[in-house]
Amino acid sequence: MPETAKVDIAEANKGAGKVRVAFDEAALAGWMAANVEGFAGPLTVDQFNGGQSNPTYRLSTPGQRYVLRRKPPGQLVKGAHDVLREARVQQGLAGSAVPVARIFAVCEDEGVIGSPFYVMDMVEGRIIWDAAFTEVPKAERAAYFDEMNRVIAALHSVDHVAAGLGDYGKPGNYFARQIGRWSRQYLEDELAGRLPDMDALVEWLPTAIPEGDETTIVHGDFRCDNMIFHPTEPRVLAVLDWELSTLGHPLADFAYHAMMYRMPADIVAGLGGADPVPLGLPTEAEYIAAYCARTGRDGIPNWDFYLAFNFFRLAAIFHGIKGRVERGTATNAQARERAQALPRIVALAREAMEKCR
């Protein structure tokens, strides 16, 4: 999954350390003095342990802390590591009901530190890594879920054209394009092998796309651990990790988020099918109803199609990771674990497909 600049107060110091991807810090300080409102050095730079996809740094001054996200230096695959795109969507959402970090400045000039970058506010708060919110008192957990629900509903209610994001992706036919893309990736990676259930999904999904089309801004990876919460309140201060954001279908985005109810906790933050009520959490049906109330929907027909699509998409991603493991080109330490989890993700996709049928 995409790396982010996720930081909480407790982790801020131990999560950042020696700069591994170095650059001219004096040049950055000079650029910030000219382009970042209120900047005053001296500047200290540390690199976060995460952010392997896009190197991410903590910038500290006597009066302010910032986060810098940059493209990796060197030759890159076209369209990859587009940090300026991340900055653009957060700038477009500034002032909306969707909490995002303030973007102070964007630099497209590779001559400053060797690649394009942007500087944003370092939001102080906490990350909830466990979808059951076990570190939160039971009586407060439902409020945290309601806040996540509010934020994703607010995102899908933003007028993307008015926000200057009318060309942020291709409008319309989202499911057909996505199913085609991930089916091709799955079918072309012969070394990773074929799975009968994936073959069945490749055949069935294009025939089951619900009628009606919608286009909104979608986050693409909306999970509890991609948000910074207030240190003590059930309030999201900033949504992070906009690497997969685009224009797409809101129900695809919401269903990806709601997969937490069925997602095994050891794969991606999820409840693994556990009964949410004893945990102090809303049921899946209650969570869907809250989203529908906020977005003016009268329920979500074909709900299991949206789940099947998202589990299929995730399975295709994990299938690609398995292929890289088999070829010996996987660099992430979790790659083998992801590859081993593939059968369980495919089984969840098949289960949703059968319910939809």
Results as ranks from 00 to 15, higher is better:
V158R: 07
V325K: 07
G41F: 05
G111T: 07
L59M: 09
A176L: 05
N173F: 01
I345C: 08
A330F: 00
P276N: 05
V7A: 13
M353S: 13
L84S: 04
P278Q: 05
T246S: 14
E211R: 09
D266R: 08
M260E: 07
S96Q: 02
A289Q: 14
R324G: 11
A208W: 00
L165I: 01
Y144I: 04
W31M: 04
I127F: 02
N35H: 11
R223V: 06
L195A: 04
W303E: 15
F311E: 09
K322W: 01
E211Y: 10
A105S: 07
G280Y: 00
D298K: 11
G270V: 00
L187D: 06
P234Y: 03
M259G: 15
G296E: 13
F309L: 04
P99Y: 00
N54T: 15
R262K: 12
V77M: 11
D275L: 00
P206W: 11
A265S: 14
A139W: 01
G272C: 00
A285C: 02
F117N: 12
N149K: 04
N49Q: 08
T283Q: 03
I152Q: 03
N173R: 14
M198C: 02
W242M: 08
M263W: 02
I345S: 08
G30V: 15
T283R: 01
G270E: 12
E124G: 11
A131V: 01
Y306N: 13
Y306R: 07
A208N: 10
A252R: 00
F133H: 03
S53P: 10
I103E: 09
G164V: 11
E108F: 06
